[in-house]
Design a protein around this nucleic acid. Structure first.
Lengths: 234, 234
DNA sequence: GAATGCAAGATTGCATACAATCCTGTCGAC
DNA sequence: GTCGACAGGATTGTATGCAATCTTGCATTC
């Protein structure tokens, strides 16, 4: 049935197995191949990746610290289902961090950085054209993380990376239909501002980009949250 | 020699042992009883806390994700030694997060919150008077985290909590002698602004408070960093 | 006498085995 | 007929044992 996907991965990374397992899971979650609420059984994962339960547990624990999976006692690990409140908080945190980080990035942005960002956008467009919405979303997230890296702020970049990952879950849960990621425009404009070293412009563009993103979600009531079931059936 | 400190802790918390071990270690690091670079041997900790190595490993892994301990392959876990660059980044991140969080907190601050903060300060003063510098520092950190909680932002509060913990390590490494935490003044003023719901004032006070903190450190060159040895002896 | 190679001890990395807990389907009683 | 109790199966939590790796002290050689 399920091929042992992990065999190659295992050999390639020698003893960084738990990181490769964690990033593989993270990517799958990012690309919405593992929707929120999915059960992540330890035995299943151990067989899929060809490693022992010990390493699976470590990987799940790592993702749990990133708030990507939730651990229920004696029940196991599940892909996290951010609450409405959590969703709002994540985007408030992004609004606090990302605009000024983009500002800093504009000052330090090198031509190579611009090239890298353009490559990202191109890959995003390609994925979108191929109908691979999940991959496009993943690349769109990497774009934001790359900007934080350009700003030369590893610490803040790590925070933003976590927030972007969680945003992916939030989008999966609270997405308001249609609107096939027209944000590419916003990303194009951002690149232009960064390339021109226009800090204030980059900051403003990032701020409005995030506002657009939030407004494309439905964070008013739990209209679409399939998480609780209790509240879904009252 | 070493008394089995963990016995009581073990029984009290039933199966939350890894959390109690982690928080005990975190507190010890916070209070500078475990200086940066300290070896954290698994067997030693297992005996001290009266639990198995498995749980020690989990606790160390958790602290590693908070950047409080560093894991060296086949060498074990050590209390982290933030680099100069990391130190600067931590305080830049705090400067980005905390002032505006204080602003939000001012709007939501209730009389009970004010009471709680005052109790914190009082305990801090008491610890300082008792000569327990480490505990005073710990409480001073909790003060900042409490403000983030008042702002009703769990996500940002978690980030700030991590940054405060790392700040404690940075202070241990890059502390410029004298100046026995005169920041109590700053905390008093902050409480006043919060109680008066004066958002802009709270924001400004927090910003200058953090600047004061940074200026009390020595982040220009690695004059006092005992971490690298390679760079210390060139 | 100094440097290199080697071996023993110690410590972490990993996997497996066992115990505890939970879910679910079935049987029995009211 | 429905509700409650119980047992079987499955899954996670935890501990222990073995293998891999690093450190360090010692012996041997130049």
């Amino acid at each position: 049935m399920v091929m042992k996907v992990g065999t190659m991965t295992k050999k390639q990374s020698q003893s960084g197995t738990i990181e490769s397992v964690a990033s593989a899971l993270e990517k799958a979650i990012h690309e919405h191949r593992l929707p929120p609420g999915s059960k992540l059984g330890e035995d299943d994962l151990a067989e899929i990746y060809g490693v022992s339960r010990t390493q699976i547990r470590a990987a799940l624990q790592a993702l749990s610290h990133l708030k990507l999976v939730e651990h229920k006692r004696n029940r196991g690990a599940f892909v996290a289902q951010p609450t409405l409140r959590e969703a709002r908080e994540v985007f408030e945190a992004r609004a606090l961090l990302e605009p000024r980080t983009a500002h800093s990035a504009a000052a330090r942005c090198t031509p190579e950085d611009v090239e890298k960002l353009r490559a990202h956008i191109e890959a995003e467009h390609a994925a979108l054209a191929a109908g691979d919405n999940g991959r496009a979303l993943h690349l769109s997230g990497l774009f934001h993380i790359e900007i934080a890296r350009i700003a030369d702020q590893e610490t803040i970049a790590a925070f933003i990376a976590q927030l972007v990952s969680r945003s992916s879950l939030i989008i999966a849960l609270y997405w308001r239909r249609r609107m096939a990621m027209c944000e590419s425009h916003a990303h194009d404009a951002l690149i232009a501002a960064l390339a021109a070293h226009d800090g204030p412009q980059a900051e403003e563009l990032m701020k409005s980009h995030l506002l657009d993103l939030v407004s494309s979600l439905d964070l008013r009531n739990q209209l679409s949250a399939p998480g609780s079931l209790r509240e879904a059936l009252t």
